[in-house]
Design a protein around this nucleic acid. Structure first.
Lengths: 246, 246
DNA sequence: AACCGATGGTTCAAATATTGAACCGATTTA
DNA sequence: TAAATCGGTTCAATATTTGAACCATCGGTT
């Protein structure tokens, strides 16, 4: 792996839960030598991707990332464009909707929306990574990804995951019951870009105790419609169904 | 300069005006060898900071930057927190307000807001860089920056810039008349972080033909108030006036 | 006050990754 | 058809990165 790869890996250590890190801590959790780590950090800092805070000299993400994301959204309005649809989906179903994107082989949460009417909500964190093997979004994506096999095989629950994926292909949406989080039923559809490759997922996470056959139907139909809308908005097209009857 | 610095410099080539670049073009405008450039690009791409588009194989900013910026805003809500104040400032003055931030020795536009009532607006691009020597924001910042001298000396108009800075220190705001853009009068105040260092500027850009003594007064008072508000919001404090009478 | 174990940061020879001219095949232009 | 792009690759020469050991400093214990 090249030097810049190591530097960029350091950025992955910054999360919602841990937005600040000291030098030694970063060196430990990245496996890099302290001196190496320090050099990479200062190099990232000099470009504004990181900054050092007050007297503790901890590192956190810097203001340069704001420019990059503004440019990305201006060039490819992935997030902002999808937000209204996401909000509508949350309202229509009365549950939490969220959008995720495949980034460097991982599933990254991009955005989410709550239904205003519910007191009990399934809470989400954006800017975090979702495990492929334990989420409906993961299954929806794996069902339509080109080389999903290695990812599936690597999962701790490869068998049930495989079953979930087969089901997702058949029904058009993936479903998990209290898998990633207890008492949360999740439903997800894949999203596609202009080349027909699956690049993300749209999901609804519902509180399990509320679930009824009616709500199930409401969610799945609204979800499929919203998914098609976002895919269209991204200039995308669902892939041609292979093996369909003539 | 280290390798990661070169890689990060590549990111600077992506702008609002030029959001996509081919390999050869990037190599040329960065001065890097094509092979080197290609390696750096693929490394950036592997982490999702860049992505390659369709058949032309051009590079553009990737979805990973969205995660970084979401985390940054969650940890340090620079932009979102200031937006309401920025909008209020635009409405109160009837002109265009904008917010910029010092990033790696440059002045980066963070956000802007237009007044709804005006047909003629001073237009802004966010996610771009402002020249220190030709903008009110630049002068406001230089007036309160620790080691501003080298930047001032490097300016093509060091003398008039120096005068503008002295005036900014005295009045509490900086002013430029048709400097950066023709027929635009700009006003700016510095913003400070918790350590008392100047980290950005808040500005109002007004259409020169509209300018009257009344409007001038409206703008400067609203600007100073809004600046103090944002500084306070950022947990900042204006520096202690040195050399003030006892 | 001396000691301990942290912290952030620096040094420099040894090891390793980076570099760049030349090359390739594929398009596009003349 | 030929010349000139384009994106991408190769490999020996080279310059950069690496990491153990080293400071100085801090905060808590004994």
């Amino acid at each position: 792996m090249g030097t810049v790869g190591k530097a960029l890996d350091l950025l992955d250590l910054f999360t919602k839960a841990q937005p600040q890190h000291g030098l030694s801590h970063l060196a430990r959790s990245s496996g890099l030598n302290k001196a190496t780590c320090h050099r990479l950090l200062t190099e990232l800092e000099s470009r504004g991707l990181l900054e050092q805070t007050g007297p503790a000299r901890e590192y956190r993400l810097g203001p340069a990332v704001l420019r990059l994301s503004a440019l990305r959204e201006a060039a490819v309005p992935t997030r902002e464009a999808a937000m209204p649809i996401l909000r509508r989906l949350a309202e229509a179903t009365g549950e939490t909707a969220h959008l995720s994107h495949i980034v460097a082989g991982r599933l990254q949460t991009l955005a989410f929306a709550y239904a205003s009417r519910q007191g009990v909500r399934v809470m989400m964190e954006d800017a975090d990574f979702l495990p492929f093997h334990a989420t409906a979004s993961g299954a929806a994506v794996l069902a339509h990804l080109a080389d999903a096999e290695p990812l599936i095989a690597a999962a701790p629950n490869a068998d049930t995951l495989r079953a979930r994926i087969v089901e997702a292909r058949a029904k058009g949406y993936a479903e998990t019951l209290s898998t990633f989080e207890k008492d949360v039923n999740s439903f997800a559809v894949p999203l596609f870009d202009a080349t027909g490759t699956c690049t993300g997922a749209l999901a609804v996470a519902a509180a399990a105790p509320r679930m009824t056959p009616d709500l199930h139907a409401t969610i799945t139909t609204a979800l499929i419609a919203a998914g098609a809308e976002i895919t269209a908005l991204w200039g995308g097209q669902p892939p041609i169904r292979t093996g369909a009857p003539t």
